[in-house]
Design a protein around this nucleic acid. Structure first.
Length: 801
RNA sequence: GCCGGGGUGGCGUAAUGGUAGCCGCAGCGGUCUUAAAAACCGCAGUCCUAACGGACGUGUGGGUUCGACUCCCACCCCCGGCACCA
């Protein structure tokens, strides 16, 4: 009896069959046509896999399965990104130790992922908290360090003076207070590890042009890297070193009427007139408080004070007074600017408030406030009349270079990657602090540096990681001199774990190398990467950096890790992001239990275009579920000897065509709609159904509903497995209709229609259209002015008047 | 503020210069049933009309075109990212 859809039994049956036969285990060394189908591995939260994960994995898996049926040997691994502050904070909250908590989350995730029925190769899975993995994360760090890409530096961290702990940015509330105790958060400077991503700023930017990635993702990266071209300009100060500024518009230098230093610029207090120094220092402190709190409004963007001292304009020798103001940031350019109030809005607002002169140097309309500055230079000495910004920018820069006060310069917003975390739940950074030898790397043969089990893993009050609590861990000997030494107690950022996991997958199981040279050459770079744009600038950029560095150090043959990247959309409900506080979280398990994984996958992909934000509707899954039920029931009507009518053949090939075109373009929704239409057509068909119709449906459905496709394939008497079959071919001669409806319009409005053979010539169409009684009536004896004929589509009769 | 992505029936969406609303959801009517569920058949943008038919209709206003959801200009709203980056 085939008429009931027992999805539970069907899905369990095929999942165990796949496992028994190792259908998705790829012989990585041997297979001839490697295709590395990667999706972003999940962070195993306590809530379990959410709908967003299910959606992404369904889409990415449909892609992988489709490519497999195109003849590729598709390697599709999955893993767990299980270290990190999120996990640790959650463990703190529920009062359990992350070691056991995360392990149980991972177990749950495995089960859920298996129920989804994706073609994951479970023999090649990765868990970032496994010493067999993080040993190589530590190796990566050492390799980068030895290669000159890691260094120690000082950076401010957010610090709660009451809890005596380092805070993550998201633990600071909008008013600058600690989310736990409400105390005002301050900053504290700590010595930390940095990775020199800025070494590749230019390459990370220019490579984007040739990468086959979603444009939306590339745009986010370009923005984040933030390249600006301009000049460094020195303004001399009597009796002091000159003050250096960066400007993207050196051509407006004649309009520089004052200068501004960031409150925390190292020279702000030093350059202030002696009687103002304490006041300037107080201002800087207050500015720092507001900056930590993330407070910014129009009021404090014009807040600032004079330093009581002047610089000199390098080209005119005029006096230019110095100020400090909050709107100038220490972290960008040189932390000081030449202010051109006529052509910069912020400078203009500041000048108004502090009654400073505004000198226009670019002609053009300036109705109110500053204008952007394109036009011709004025008030600029012998540069007057030059077109600005270009070519004036270049000529003024040249003059500055000649005078010795300037040089061309490119700056980037991208800053080096700070990887130190003063926390517990991460891989220990493999460094040793020796009083004699300084900071020395842990020898590679001593890896992994195991994360010790520490009962009390709460952050310490010293700004150090809780690992400092464990004397057994802390105290060691220097690998260099053999004397007593202490281990680095910070752990590394989770993003370091995920910056290289794709390199590991093919080499899982190898305990002698992070990644095998031959396997890596064969399988990487990743053929296709599917992921969310929330990782566009962190994970995806860090992975590119790590790959570039390893390439430069001779460990990889390629510099870019992901040949093709496609961003998927997000699932929302009621137009809003799902969140516990909104109470609109969908628990996928219930849907899968009730409708089956196939129906759930189909529903998620049918919701709309894969790359867009999509709205989850509770009852929506009924449609795809009914479709699968009907499809299964059609099997009862198959007679192997039944011939395929011409009309059915056309419908079938149209369906093949749509699914074949739409699937690789990730238009899963329209591909599914095409299959639904074909099933509808079969249901309306009188008499027995030809076997080929159902076989085709099984093949087309295989990427979307892998279990039911197998079931149908088997019930049709075909050999296991449907997923090893070649994709069906489209007969292009059959994808157009024999007869077409041609709409007849008067002045663009539909008035009647013709049914004619496809390909009828325009002259005939025109003649037949005009002879229609209804059209005759509209013409009312008048002659048409013009007639437009679109073959197989439309005849538009234009009447005067 | 800047940069993206959107705005189409009650809802999710389809159509990127040629019949707007494919495919679904929810709804309504019917068949079957003691009944309900399931299943199956049918209706369904809005307004006018007894009907034939007609008018209007893709965020708003303009434009290009024989013809515009689609292209151009201006604006409004929603979502996401960045946010004093000189």
């Amino acid at each position: 009896m085939t008429s009931t859809y027992d999805h539970g039994a069907i899905e369990a049956k095929w999942q165990s069959r796949w496992q028994e036969t190792g259908l998705y285990e790829i012989a990585l060394e041997r297979v001839p046509r490697p295709y590395y189908n990667l999706m972003m591995f999940p962070y195993p939260s306590a809530e379990g896999l959410h709908v967003g994960n299910m959606f992404a994995f369904s889409g990415a898996d449909a892609h992988g399965r489709f490519e497999r049926m195109q003849g590729f040997d598709v390697f599709e691994p999955i893993g767990f990104d299980a270290f990190g502050i999120h996990s640790e904070n959650f463990a703190l909250k529920v009062g359990r130790h992350p070691t056991e908590l995360i392990a149980s989350n991972v177990r749950r995730f495995r089960e859920q992922l298996k129920r989804l029925g994706a073609q994951f190769d479970w023999t090649k899975t990765v868990d970032t908290t496994d010493p067999a993995y993080y040993r190589w994360t530590q190796w990566l760090f050492l390799t980068l360090w030895k290669g000159g890409f890691a260094y120690r530096g000082r950076r401010n961290v957010k610090w709660c003076p009451q809890d005596l702990t380092v805070l993550a940015d998201e633990q600071v509330l909008a008013d600058g207070s600690c989310e736990r105790c409400g105390a005002l958060v301050t900053e504290r400077e700590l010595e930390q590890w940095f990775l020199r991503i800025s070494a590749f700023s230019e390459r990370l930017l220019t490579d984007l042009d040739s990468l086959n990635w979603s444009e939306s993702t590339k745009l986010l990266q370009r923005h984040w890297i933030g390249r600006s071209q301009g000049a460094l300009i020195d303004f001399p100060i009597d009796g002091e070193d000159p003050l250096r500024v960066f400007s993207t518009r050196p051509d407006t230098i004649f309009g520089a009427t004052f200068m501004v230093l960031a409150p925390d610029h190292p020279r702000t207090v030093e350059l202030a007139a002696p009687e103002l120094r304490s006041e300037v220092a107080a201002f800087a402190a207050e500015a720092a408080r507001r900056r930590i709190a993330g407070q910014r409004d129009d009021e404090n963007s014009t807040q600032g004070m004079a330093l009581g001292r002047d610089a000199r304009h390098p080209l005119t020798g005029n006096r230019v007074p110095l100020f400090t103001a909050e709107y100038v940031l220490s972290g960008y350019g040189t932390g000081a600017i030449m202010a051109v109030p006529a052509h910069d809005q912020r400078d203009h607002a500041f000048a108004l408030r502090h009654h400073l002169p505004v000198v226009e140097v670019v002609s053009g309309r300036a109705e109110s406030g500053a204008h952007g500055g394109s036009g011709s230079l004025i008030n600029s000495g012998h540069f007057d009349g030059l077109k600005a910004p270009d070519p004036a920018r270049e000529l003024v820069t040249a003059a500055l270079v000649e005078s010795g006060w300037g040089q061309p310069h490119v700056t980037y917003k991208l800053r080096d990657w700070g990887i130190s975390r003063q926390r517990y739940w991460g891989p220990p950074i493999p460094a040793i602090h020796c009083p004699k030898c300084g900071v020395v790397p842990v020898p590679e043969e001593d890896l992994p540096v195991l994360l010790p089990y520490i009962e009390d893993f709460r952050p310490l009050g010293t700004g150090e990681s809780p690992l400092a609590r464990d004397p057994q861990f802390l105290n060691t000997t220097c690998p260099n001199c053999g004397g007593p030494a202490q281990r680095e107690t910070d752990v590394s950022d989770t993003f370091l774990d995920s910056s290289w996991y794709f390199l590991r997958y093919p080499s899982v199981g190898r305990d002698d190398v992070a990644f095998d040279r031959e396997l890596t050459r064969k399988w990487l770079p990743v053929t296709y990467y599917d992921g969310g744009n929330e990782h566009a600038v962190l994970h995806l950029l860090y992975s590119r950096f790590v790959t570039m560095a390893l390439h430069q150090l001779g460990h990889l043959d390629f510099a870019e890790p992901f040949t093709e990247f496609r961003a998927h959309g997000t699932i929302v409900k009621g137009g809003a992001k799902m969140s516990k506080s909104r109470g609109n979280v969908v628990v996928p398990d219930e849907y899968i239990a009730h409708f089956g994984a196939d129906a759930f996958r189909l529903y998620l992909l049918y919701l709309g275009p894969y790359s867009e934000t999509l709205n989850f509707v509770d009852s929506g899954i009924n449609g795809p579920f009914r479709f699968l039920t009907q499809l299964l029931r059609l099997l009862d009507r198959v007679e192997p000897s039944a011939p395929e009518t011409a009309a059915l053949a056309r419908a079938r090939h149209r369906c093949i065509h749509r699914v074949t075109v739409d699937t690789p373009e990730r238009k899963y929704n329209t591909a599914i709609a095409a299959m639904m239409s074909f099933v509808k057509r079969l249901r309306e068909h009188d008499g027995p159904l030809p076997q080929v119709a159902m076989e085709t449906l099984a093949l087309l459905l295989a990427p979307y509903c892998p279990h039911l496709a197998e079931e149908i394939w088997e019930r049709l008497g075909r050999e296991y497995s449907v997923h090893q079959q070649p994709w069906p071919a489209t007969d292009r001669s059959l994808i157009v209709d024999e007869q077409v409806v041609v709409v007849v319009c008067i002045n663009g409005k539909k008035r009647d229609q013709l049914v004619v053979a496809a390909g009828t010539d325009p002259a005939t169409l025109e003649k037949e259209a005009l002879s229609l009684p209804r059209i005759q009536k509209w013409l009312a004896g008048k002659a048409p002015e013009r007639i437009f004929v679109v073959p197989d589509r439309q005849v538009n009769v234009v009447l005067a008047g």
